[in-house]
Amino acid sequence: MAERSDLIIIGAGPAGLAAAIYAARARLRTLVLDESVPGGQVKTTHKVSNYPGFPEDVKGSDLAKAFAAQAERFGARVRRAVEITKHDLASIPKKLELDEEEEVEAPAVIVATGAKPRELGVPGESRFKGRGISYCATCDGAYFDGKDIHVIGGGNSAVEESLFLTQFARSVTIVHQFDHFQAEAATVEEALHDPKIQVIWDSEPRGFLGENALEKLRIENVKTHEFRELRTDGVFVFVGYVPRTDLVKGLVPMNQWGYVETDESMATGVPGLYVAGDIRSKKFRQITTAVADGTIAALAAQKWLKEHR
């Protein structure tokens, strides 16, 4: 027998947990599922400075725990490290198989699976993943104590995490494809004044080289087309994200980059199926916008459930 909830939320990031807070307070039997621990991308962000309510910076992992604790306080069940091994999100009720051994179902589902770090797709990248190439500064920064490392990217994540990495590394060289950063001005200013941080502008990675571990990063200046090989102890890659859409592929409309199209109530067109957060097609992806999506999805799902019982 499948365990029945009113609402299942897939993904325990800011969108999913905001939805869970609203749904649980509306007294919906709410089940939240995550393949990892709660927090989504926030849990591995070393600090968050732009989330309202925190006049001092808050550690991403602390904010993640607070989101989850708040949802659980109102009765949402947040299940960690569960994998969805089969799914039927088209029918009602929607059914999921967990870890190949258990079934759960609910008439309404919110998919808030977010996005994962984009890989560069450059030769040598898969070979040196975990052998010098990393996508998570909080997880792997300490491996590079006293080392000379490189960061690829120029958005908020790249510049913020470069600052974080200076507490371990001897030097951090940022390689960015443009001649200016896309990160917030306050962060950029801090980075440009940091004595440990250097920047190589107008350059893109073209390859990773080494014997057993990564030794060299090959880059191309996109203006002069000159190639260089840089000696490196490690490379952190922060070049954006790709949506995690495996569960809804073929079921809901997506834009050309694979993000899910919804109406303004986060509805997908499939009855009872909503999406929220970074997986959704929209202009800005922030913790605050994810939380807003989650709130709207939960309220919309609640209304839909009332009308369809």
Binding site: E35, K129, C136, D140, A213
Partner: peptide, 25 residues
């Protein structure tokens, strides 16, 4: 040559075999 956590390494017949696994996924 491990530079990331978590990293799973597989051993058989007295040596490393197969692909390593790492990261969140």
């Amino acid at each position: 040559g491990v530079t990331g956590s978590p990293t799973l390494i597989f051993f058989a017949g007295g040596r490393e075999v197969g692909e390593r696994m790492g990261g969140e996924d």
